[in-house]
């Protein structure tokens, strides 16, 4: 069952992937093995596809490096839940097809190591008998996510959603 990896408020993209492990420093094939290298060195070895990342406020502030969320995608992360997001990180998540859910209540309720199930489309999160409803992403983003990512949407339609 997918587990929760819970992080604090103000986790920046240097925390998610330190600059010295950028793909162009260490190679495009292995940069993701350095995700959270400073903060939780065990993360990239122990994380399993489908696991859920949970952040507090202002998730992903700092550098615009898309390879930070891209490292998470390579490790199989399909959704994150945060109290709030920094804007570039939010765009990057959507562009990569990782769903950025937003909820104070759910973030407060979840603990690191919790085993959960998350229905990505309906936004329903279950922990044992408990059920939490997450608000789905706005239509513009949902349209892009339906094709996989914004890149896939543009490739298929030759335009941006809603254009």
């Amino acid at each position: 069952m997918p587990r929760v990896w819970k992080f604090s408020d103000h986790i920046n993209t240097d925390d998610i992937l330190p600059g010295k492990y950028a793909p162009f420093m260490v190679g495009e094939d292995r940069f993701h093995t350095f995700a959270f290298a400073h903060l939780r060195p065990e993360f990239s070895k122990e994380v399993r596809p489908g696991d859920i990342l949970v952040f507090g406020r202002n998730a992903g502030l700092g550098s615009s490096r898309e390879y930070a969320p891209e490292a998470l995608k390579r490790l199989g992360i399909r959704a994150v839940i945060a109290k709030s997001y920094a804007r570039i990180f939010f765009r990057n998540l959507v562009n990569l097809g990782i769903i950025p859910f937003e909820s104070e209540e759910v973030v407060d309720a979840l603990e690191d190591g919790d085993e959960v199930e998350l229905d990505l489309e309906g936004g329903v999160l279950r922990r044992g008998e408990e059920r939490f409803q997450l608000r789905p992403p706005p239509p513009f983003l949902l349209e892009a996510l339906k094709e996989g990512s914004l890149l896939d949407y543009y490739k298929k339609h030759g335009r941006f959603p809603g254009e």
């Binding site: 615009s64 898309e66 390879y67 990057n92 562009n95 914004l150 890149l151 543009y154």
Partner: peptide, 13 residues
């Protein structure tokens, strides 16, 4: 500032 996907789409389109 934007990530690589947004920047690539901005260049392409």
């Amino acid at each position: 500032g934007m990530g690589a996907t947004d920047i690539a789409l901005a260049a392409a389109s």
